[in-house]
Simulated assay, not measured.
Amino acid sequence: MSWISALAELQQSGTPCVLVTIIEERGSTPRNAGSKMVVSAERIYQTIGGGHLEYKAMQIAREMLESRTQDSRLERFSLGASLGQCCGGATVLLFEPMGQPQAHIAVFGAGHVGRALIPILASLPCKVRWIDSRESEFPAQIADNVEKVVSEDVVDEVEAMPSGSYYIVMTHNHQLDLELTAAILKREDFAYYGLIGSQTKRVKFEHRLRDRGFSADVMQRMRCPLGLAEVKGKLPVEIAVSIAGEVIATYNSTFGEHKNSKSGKGESIAKLMPTSRRSQG
């Protein structure tokens, strides 16, 4: 795959990467100026010559991805014994971060809070799937990075999300909320799960989930009530801001971790957050 095709593919999937370009060459070097390599957290595309130079470039690029920097960077390398290469020349590499890390978020429910929350999430570096069985509940205009999903079988949409996704459940039906909760907790690979409702609703759900065989450790990862307690108010937009704040806090805490881990990182994140008083729904 060419470097430009790789960039397009990564942009389409919302995967951040670093474009590495040789911008200066002196003496003998493995590749000429203008040669490029694309580095993501999982793969590299094309080459700037291989060897230890390429390894160091890949290492720097992934450190930039880990730190989420958006600043370009220049590095000069002497291709001698210290770098483990015998070319004897020198090269200057330009590192350019491309794209923003994107969270994948599924929002179930197009009620008042959902309609207030979606515009906030759409302004963040994320991809949103907004799911409801009621076509009439969706507004006429929806942001480009929000996918509207009208489905009679909304529970099936849980499996359509990639590993490490964020789930927010606020439907009009408590039984549907319970079925969605069971499907999400069963996956165990979510980065965040928030359920709108009161502490009483949580207790009832936990009782029913225990009857289905869910452990206390898994249920602890569910945020219900959801949202940041510091953000007060009961207006839909106030609740939406509180939920978005909690999602952002979780996103910043887990960036760079392996989202498909089942080690219970979501539980430790939840412990860092104060208990919410969001009890609507």
Rank of each mutant, 00 (worst) to 15 (best):
T200L: 13
C87E: 12
T21S: 15
A191W: 04
H207R: 13
I22D: 01
G264D: 10
C87G: 14
P16D: 07
K186V: 03
G281T: 06
A270S: 13
S5D: 10
I142L: 05
V92P: 02
K204S: 13
P225M: 10
G256F: 09
G264H: 12
K186C: 09
M219Q: 06
G14L: 09
S78R: 13
I105K: 06
K36Y: 07
Y193D: 02
E137M: 11
E96P: 04
F95G: 03
H112C: 06
A122D: 10
K148Y: 04
H52N: 14
A103R: 14
G264T: 11
P30Q: 10
N32A: 15
M98Y: 00
V241S: 04
T15C: 06
K234S: 12
I48N: 01
S123T: 10
G88K: 09
M98W: 00
V39I: 11
N145K: 01
K56W: 07
E96W: 05
I120D: 07
L185I: 14
E54V: 06
W3F: 14
M161A: 08
S67L: 07
A140T: 12
T171Y: 08
S72V: 02
F214E: 05
R76G: 04
L53H: 10
S151G: 03
L226A: 15
T200S: 15
V20R: 01
V39Q: 03
P101G: 02
S2P: 08
E63H: 14
E66R: 15
F108A: 04
M64P: 01
Y251M: 10
A216K: 14
H52K: 13
P236V: 01
T69L: 05
A116K: 03
Q11G: 13
D71Y: 00
A240H: 04
M37G: 00
D177E: 11
I120M: 15
I118D: 03
P225Q: 10
L178H: 14
L19R: 10
V38Q: 01
G197E: 07
G51F: 05
V20D: 03
S163Q: 13
S136D: 08
S28E: 11
G245M: 01
A270D: 08
E96Q: 15
I4Y: 14
E157P: 02
A41P: 02
